[in-house]
Every structure is written in C-alpha cells, then in structure tokens.
Design a binder for these strands. Structure first.
Lengths: 192, 192
DNA sequence: GTCTATAGCCCGATAGAC
DNA sequence: GTCTATCGGGCTATAGAC
C-alpha cells in the first residue's frame, strides 16, 4: 500500500476513535510504521492531516438513496429509507461517532462540518416529507397529517436509535426489534 | 468561596466544554486564579481532578421525577415525563453534551459512567412502561400494545431530540414544536 | 494552604543526510 | 521519499520556601 495511504488510514482510525487532541503524531507514525517526519512531508501539519482524514471519513455520506425507491409504494418507500438510514449508521458507526463527537466539542468545527451534516439531514427529511405528502394525496395516509412534522419525527426517532447505539454495547441485539417497532408505530399509524 | 471549590468549579466548566485532553491544568489554574501547584495539593493529579469534576457533573442527574406524577391520568403522566426529560436536557445541555462525548470516546470510561447512564435510562424506561401498562389495563390504551417496546420507542424519540439539539443551533426554535408533535403522535396514537 | 521555581517528559515541527 | 536527530515549548508533577 501507498505510504501516504497508510498514514491517512491510520490517522483516520485513530482520530475517529480518540479524537484530535488525544491522538499524537508519534502514535500515528508508530502505528503506521513510518517516521514522524514523513507525516510532515505528506501532510503539512497535524491540522491538514486531520482535515484530510475527516474528508475521507465523510465521503461515504454521499449515498445515493433514491435509486432504491423506484416502483415501491409510499409506505414501502418510507420503510426502505428507514432501513437504509439504519444500515448506513450501522456500517459506518465509527465515523458517525467521530462526526457526532466533533459536533459536541467546542473544538473549531472544521470548515463546514455542521453545514454538511445539516444539509444531509435536510435532504433526507425533505425526501421523507415528499413521500409522505405524495401518499397523503393518494389517500394512502391520513388526510390531516403534517408531512413535514411527521418526517421530522421519523428523523428524530432514527437519531434516537443512533444514541442508543452509542450507549449500550448492548445495542446490536436490542436495536433491531426497536427498529421494527419504530417502522410499525410511526408508519402504520399514518395509514388511514 | 473555598479555594478547592473554585478549582473544582472551574475544572468542571472547562472539562465539560473542552474535554479532558484539551484542558490543561495551567488553564484551570489561571481561570481559577490560583497557582498550578495548588491544584495538586487539593487533587492528587489531573485524573483525580477529572473524576471529581465528573461526579459533580453527574449529580443533578438524580432527579426525583416521580413526585410530580401523583394524581395525573396515565396519558398526562406520560406527557409529563416527556416534558421533564426535555426540560432536564435543556437545562443541563453542557453537561449532557459532556457525558455523551465521553460515551463516544474509546478513552477509558471513568469508572461506571456507562453503567450510570444506562441505569438512568433503564429506570426512566421502566417507569414509562409501568405507566403504559397501567393505562392499558384500565382500558385507556389499546389492548394489543407492547408497553416495554412503546416505552423504548418514546425514549428513542427523546434521545433523538437530544441529537437534534447537538446539531442545529437552530434547535431551540425548532425542537419545541417537534416535542409537541412527538407527544401527540406517540401518546395519542396509543389511546384506544 | 499557598506560592515560585524547576525537573522531566512528550509534543509538533524542522534540518539535513541519504 | 524516507530517515535520524534535534529544537523550542507546553505539559504534568514535584521540591521547597513561607
């Protein structure tokens, strides 16, 4: 593997599990099995290395989620989106933890991290709201529902599952049925 | 004010806003207006200071929530608990952020932090489940509901509001109506 | 109990040989 | 591109005067 890649991979892993301040370049160098000075050759300083690692971390966040929805009913589209959100979080738990922990810190938020995350949240919520509204107009969902609020509520519940995943290492076994219950409760109660 | 108190208060504030590694004892000493050595006289080392500060941070987490519920109907008890959870998080946002960020780190979790948080979560969820079950037996709620799962779902949604609070500084204005919608959707749909 | 002074370590970053 | 060696500085922690 490329040396730069080796450094970047190690740094991404260490930053995302230990945070920026807790991770020394000496540790990165040791675990990547290169000299410390080499890090400065490839990345100007610790800050630049961090930004590059963060960018790498955020890459999979651009997921094309819409393609999967064609041909499904509104109800199934919603359920599919919920499943996809959950699957994404499960598969990227480390980096998700990383991003959330960045949001929690006073630490200078690198560039537009917050904007990036908010944008992702907004897109997802709007997609849900559009589907809900479409279903409402077709008479699948209750007429007096509020698509935007119900979309926000679904997002909220999904974020909640996220938190549960942080807390209990007991999560893996307990959050799967919770997800099923969430889909049943939130979606099915919207059906007229 | 007592010097020890002054150090502890300053440390609690700085640790909770900047994290452990990002907060130097020099900074604590400066902001508490004492000499650095004095910190070591009162607290053996940085770790001990941190543990003491964390304990202080967790103190308000023992809230007596039950007394407020007497005389209320099951539906109103649930809604009251939801409001209390939300109010608590709003009033203790900094320390809540602190605790969550600790949960996110690989860092040695100080003592039984996770156990402590899980316990709090468990107590709260069981309380919700008991109330739901009581209401179900009285015929207030649907007979075929699952009190434990529905309690877990409510907890999940509340945790989700937490995350929203982290993300958007736009939270204060947008999470209040979301809370109302949450109560309406989750609780009222349980009513038979 | 509170201070100043300082030891000793590890950090980020640089210089320079190969 | 990769290394060793090293600098200056901030850190935790200690020593010792008052």
């Amino acid at each position: 593997m490329d040396t730069r890649e080796k450094i970047l991979g190690t740094a991404t892993r260490l930053f995302s599990t230990q945070g920026f301040a807790n991770t020394s370049l000496s540790q990165v160098a040791k675990e990547a099995q290169v000299s410390k000075a080499l890090i400065f050759w490839h990345f100007e300083n610790k800050e630049k290395l961090f930004r590059t690692a963060l960018q790498r971390t955020l890459e999979p966040y651009f997921i094309n989620v819409v393609d999967d929805l064609e041909g499904l009913s509104e109800v199934d589209q919603i359920k599919r989106l919920i499943d996809q959100y959950y699957a994404f979080v499960s598969e990227n738990l480390y980096s998700v933890k990383f991003v959330v922990s960045l949001l929690l810190r006073d630490e200078k938020h690198p560039d537009d991290l917050i904007g990036h995350v908010n944008e992702l949240h907004r897109v997802y919520r709007n997609l849900l709201a559009d589907i809900l509204d479409s279903g409402r107009q077709k008479g699948v969902f209750r007429a007096k529902m509020d698509p935007r609020m119900d979309a926000a509520l679904i997002m909220t519940a999904l974020h909640g599952i996220l938190v549960q995943g942080f807390m209990g290492d007991a999560a893996p076994e307990s959050s799967e049925p919770l997800l099923q219950h969430l889909k049943a409760s939130l979606v099915d109660t919207l059906i007229r």
